[in-house]
Design a protein around this nucleic acid. Structure first.
Lengths: 157, 157
DNA sequence: TTCAGGTAGACAACTAGGTTGTCTCATACT
DNA sequence: AGTATGAGACAACCTAGTTGTCTACCTGAA
């Protein structure tokens, strides 16, 4: 039973890590290796219209160079494909490939399966209650997943 | 309301980040800047007897070099102090200073205050229920807080 | 009593994933 | 036309870790 704030923080981190690590393994087994959340987010952003490096960097809140690196990785892996913009030759416009959409779908599926497994352990009602409590606390998806110093600036401390 | 596994993962991460970021700010305001969780863990380990770099590295599950860096930081900040071992001149033995214990106490306090704030928002019963649900899922403190690839290998994907 | 093996800690070089600054070049406003 | 703005690339750097190699020293066994 957690009684201290630090324990609560560790429970939340542990819960996330538990899901994340399991998902990582699952994804690798299904042919998607070395995928990080930022890749998923990037693909979604591109799909949603952030189809240039600069625009993606704004969407993800990282530097243009970081976005360019991510794009490089995704293109190399075949999740997105790029070609020069007709109207503005400076730009390269990217689109999500079938492979990219498959990654998104697989990722969703993997997480849903993990959630189902949790529901079996503590009951769907209890799980929904947990989700609701967190939502009630106004928790939202972090704008950035990483950030040097995200752990750096904080935590079980 | 979260219905997908990915959302659940983001809620947990968001919850942790929310606590962690707030704690970071609080700690800095109370005179402890640039403190990371690993520092807290390291100090506790040293206090518990892992008083050399090598032993600390084993306790924290990182390389000796990483442990040595952490020790260097903590010593420079005055949280720990070291002196040569009488019996084995290779070793430097470290002890936690008053300052170090103060950091631990402040950290605990900060997290407890943040938890109290959450309790006020959703009620202590609901919060305890959340904690219990996570505990029932067998969630435990991650053995390592960081690990290149902790997010790297996984997540909202 | 010597000597082999293991351990402590330091140094160097490397990796990953970001950062900032500077540059070129092309578009778009005035 | 001319200037401001934005795209993308390059280089250099940062942080927090890694591995490999080295010396110095302890310890236990022949």
């Amino acid at each position: 039973m957690a009684r201290s704030g630090a324990d609560l923080a560790l429970l939340l981190l542990g819960g996330f890590r538990s899901l994340a690590d399991a998902a990582s393994v699952e994804l690798a087994e299904r042919g998607h290796e070395k995928i990080r959340p930022v890749h998923d987010f990037a693909i979604r952003s591109i799909d949603a219209g952030a189809d240039t490096a600069s625009e993606l960097s704004r969407q993800l809140g990282v530097s243009k160079q970081a976005a360019a690196k991510t794009i490089g990785f995704l293109e190399e892996r075949g999740y997105i494909t790029g070609e020069a913009d007709q109207r503005d030759p400076r730009r390269r416009r990217f689109t999500v490939t079938t492979e990219g959409h498959a990654l998104l779908a697989t990722g969703e599926q993997v997480f849903d399966e993990l959630r189902d497994r949790w529901a079996q352990r503590i009951g769907i009602k209890e799980l929904e209650r947990l989700e609701e409590a967190l939502a009630d606390l106004g928790i939202r998806a972090p704008s950035r997943l990483d950030t040097p110093g995200w752990l750096a600036g904080s935590s079980p401390e």
